[in-house]
C-alpha cells in the first residue's frame, strides 16, 4: 500500500463516519418531531363496538392469595441519584397478610367476536419517588397511556414489548406528559428506566374492558360483563399465569378466587 492509498482510505472512512453521524442526527430529530404530541402508534379504524344490554350485565370479583411464606422484598439502593427519594423495596412480589397484589386479571376467552371501543380517557402512569405508579397497569388497545414525571430528575421510559413497537424516550423533570398507545394485545409488557435500573413495571394491553389489577388486599372486581361462559386469567409478573372457567348469568355476581405458590427457583 502506498501512502496515497492510505490517506485516501482514511479520508473516505472519516467522511463515512461524519456522514453517518449526520444522518443519524437528522433521523433522530425527525423521530422526535413525530413522537411529540399525538400518540405514536396509530391503530386502524376499529369496527363498531358490539352493544351490551346494561340491564343484564354481571360482575366477577374475588381475592388472590399467596400460598406459603412470602419472599422477602429485594432492597433498592437509590443513592446513585440524589433526586430519588422513594421507598427502598422492590415490588415484584407484594404480599400483605397472604393477599397478593399486582395480579392482572382479565377475560382471556369467551367474548367471541365482540368488539369494544377504547375509552377516550387516558390511563395515567406516574413516575414519582423514582418508581412507577402503578406497578401493574391495564389498558385497552388504542387507548392513550399518559406518562408523567413528578420527580426532580430525568427518567427514560423504555417498553420492551414482544408484539408492539419498542420505543425509548427520556423525560426531564417538569416536562409535558408523554402520550403513547399500543396497537396489539400483549400481557405483562415490561417497561423499564435505564437510568434507574430498579424502575420496572408492566403494562397489560387487552382488547376488552374486562380486566382489573389486584390491590394490596388482593381484591379485584370486573364489572359490566355480559352473561356467558368465560376463561378468566390471573397473571403475575414472577409467579406466572392461572386460568379459571366461570359462567355468569344475567345480573349475576360471581366470586372467583385464586391462589399462587412461590415460583420454583
Amino acid at each position: 500500500m502506498n501512502k496515497k492509498t492510505g490517506w485516501a482510505m482514511m479520508t473516505v472512512g472519516t467522511l463515512a463516519l461524519c456522514g453517518l453521524l449526520a444522518l443519524a442526527a437528522c433521523s433522530k430529530k425527525e423521530n422526535a418531531e413525530q413522537s411529540s404530541g399525538a400518540p405514536a402508534e396509530s391503530t386502524a379504524p376499529a369496527a363498531a363496538a358490539t352493544p351490551i344490554d346494561p340491564a343484564t350485565v354481571a360482575t366477577v370479583n374475588g381475592t388472590v392469595k399467596f400460598d406459603g411464606t412470602a419472599p422477602k422484598a429485594s432492597k433498592i439502593d437509590m443513592s446513585q441519584d440524589p433526586g430519588c427519594k422513594g421507598a427502598n423495596e422492590a415490588e415484584n412480589v407484594v404480599v400483605t397478610g397472604g393477599d397478593l397484589a399486582n395480579v392482572f386479571v382479565y377475560v382471556k376467552d369467551g367474548l367471541g367476536s365482540r368488539t369494544f371501543d377504547a375509552p377516550k380517557d387516558p390511563v395515567v402512569l406516574d413516575q414519582s419517588g423514582c418508581k412507577y405508579h402503578p406497578h401493574v397497569l391495564g389498558v385497552m388497545t388504542g387507548q392513550t397511556v399518559q406518562i408523567k414525571n413528578d420527580d426532580p430528575t430525568t427518567h427514560n421510559i423504555h417498553p420492551t414489548p414482544k408484539d408492539n413497537r419498542e420505543w425509548n424516550e427520556s423525560q426531564p423533570p417538569s416536562s409535558p406528559a408523554i402520550e403513547k398507545s399500543f396497537a396489539r394485545e400483549e400481557i405483562m409488557l415490561p417497561v423499564k428506566c435505564n437510568q434507574h435500573p430498579w424502575m420496572k413495571m408492566y403494562i397489560n394491553v387487552v382488547k376488552s374492558p374486562f380486566y382489573a389489577v389486584t390491590d394490596k388486599s388482593g381484591k379485584y372486581e370486573i364489572k359490566g360483563l355480559p352473561p356467558g361462559d368465560y376463561t378468566l386469567a390471573f397473571v403475575h409478573e414472577k409467579l406466572g399465569e392461572q386460568d379459571q372457567k366461570v359462567t355468569v348469568a344475567p345480573k349475576d355476581t360471581k366470586t372467583v378466587d385464586a391462589s399462587f405458590k412461590a415460583a420454583a427457583e
Binding site: N194, H196, P197
Partner: peptide
C-alpha cells in the same frame, strides 16, 4: 449497570454532542 439505553439518542446525547448531561444514574 444495565445503562445501555439511558441516553436514548445517538450520535448526540440528549441532543448535544459534547454538553455534559445531569450526571446521575445510568447516564454516568
Amino acid at each position: 449497570n444495565d445503562a445501555g439505553l439511558s441516553v436514548p439518542d445517538w450520535p448526540t446525547s440528549f441532543g448535544y454532542l459534547i454538553k455534559v448531561p445531569h450526571f446521575v444514574g445510568g447516564i454516568r
